[in-house]
Design a protein around this nucleic acid. Structure first.
Length: 288
DNA sequence: ACTATGTCCTGCGAGC
DNA sequence: TGCTCGCAGGACATAG
């Protein structure tokens, strides 16, 4: 379901609501569990940890965890850890959540009924619960230290770096935009919207884009993502953020989901065709 | 190494 | 009303 702007919105909502709270215990649903780490690893890593912060990396939600209370500070005598003197302090544990297509992370009161397809519940010291709900089971839970997205952050990457990422690739530019190892965070909606703003057809081979076109695409991606974040993401079907609020960027979509409707610029009907197994929308007149 | 394709799931709306 | 079909915002494994 969510791409970068939706995950950013959800992360901010979660941060404002559960940062500072403590995970008392964790329940994981029956198999097949949507886990990348082992269940034991997740439970051991989460339990009794304070949620220091919630943020977004790529399309992932990241809960930065910290051990609770001063009791966990190392005591500087006795058998001090030897060796590894140059090694940095072990990085703090993190809970990593990928929402897949239909995943949600809800903040609920403990007495609220548990929704169908709830696969994990973190019981919080405040009496509330973080519930992971995901009908299609494409979402994944894991734990990590120093998590990094496989590709560059679209809103942070330098223009020249962006150009290098896509230059020379034979795959359609649409596929390249969706490749998380290149850019992390762009999904189907924002790929289509960015390509429209850059006036580039999605089926074009990435290598065929001129430097000028790549720079235009770079700007378009950043503008589209920034605007979408400002509007709380796109609510298509039933997406809502952590507070149950819908986003409004779907009202700004110029091509996504508008097959057959007139282009907002030139009135030519928007085309839909499948590229890399994903529906793609573009204006055959405005995009070259 | 890069690229194209199939597959994992459930739910929804369209059409009959 | 109820059935089938196609489609869905993602990411991987696999094969070429």
């Amino acid at each position: 379901m969510p791409e970068l702007p939706e995950v950013e919105t959800i992360a901010r909502g979660l941060a404002s609501r559960v940062a500072g709270d403590v995970i008392d215990s964790v329940w994981l649903g029956a198999k097949p569990e949507p886990l990348k780490s082992t269940a034991a690893d997740i439970i051991a890593t989460l339990e009794s940890k304070r949620i220091a912060q919630v943020r977004r990396i790529g399309k992932h939600l990241v809960f930065d965890l910290e051990s609770r209370g001063p009791a966990s500070l190392p005591v500087g005598r006795g058998s001090a850890p030897k060796a590894r003197t140059s090694a940095p302090r072990s990085r703090a544990a993190q809970w990593i959540v990928h929402l897949g297509m239909t995943g949600r992370m809800l903040v609920c009161q403990a007495d609220e009924p548990v929704a169908k397809h709830t696969h994990a519940i973190a019981h919080l010291a405040s009496g509330r619960e973080l519930r992971f709900v995901d009908p299609r089971r494409f979402g994944r839970l894991s734990v990590a230290h120093g998590f990094r997205a496989p590709g560059s952050e679209p809103l942070e990457v330098e223009g020249e770096c962006f150009v290098k990422l896509f230059g020379g690739r034979k795959t359609p530019i649409k596929s390249a935009l969706l490749n998380q190892k290149l850019l992390s965070g762009v999904g189907n909606i924002y790929a289509d919207e960015s390509l429209f703003r850059a006036a580039v057809r999605p089926q074009r081979r990435a290598a065929s884009l001129t430097r000028r076109e790549l720079r235009r695409l770079y700007r378009a991606v950043q503008e589209v993502l920034e605007e979408a974040i400002a509007l709380g993401g796109s609510s298509v079907s039933d997406y809502v953020d952590a507070d149950g609020e819908e986003g409004f960027f779907q009202l700004q979509h110029r091509v996504y989901g508008r097959a057959g409707e007139p282009c907002l610029v030139c009135k030519t009907p928007i085309k839909r065709r499948v590229i890399a197994g994903r529906s793609s929308h573009y204006c055959p007149r405005c995009q070259h």
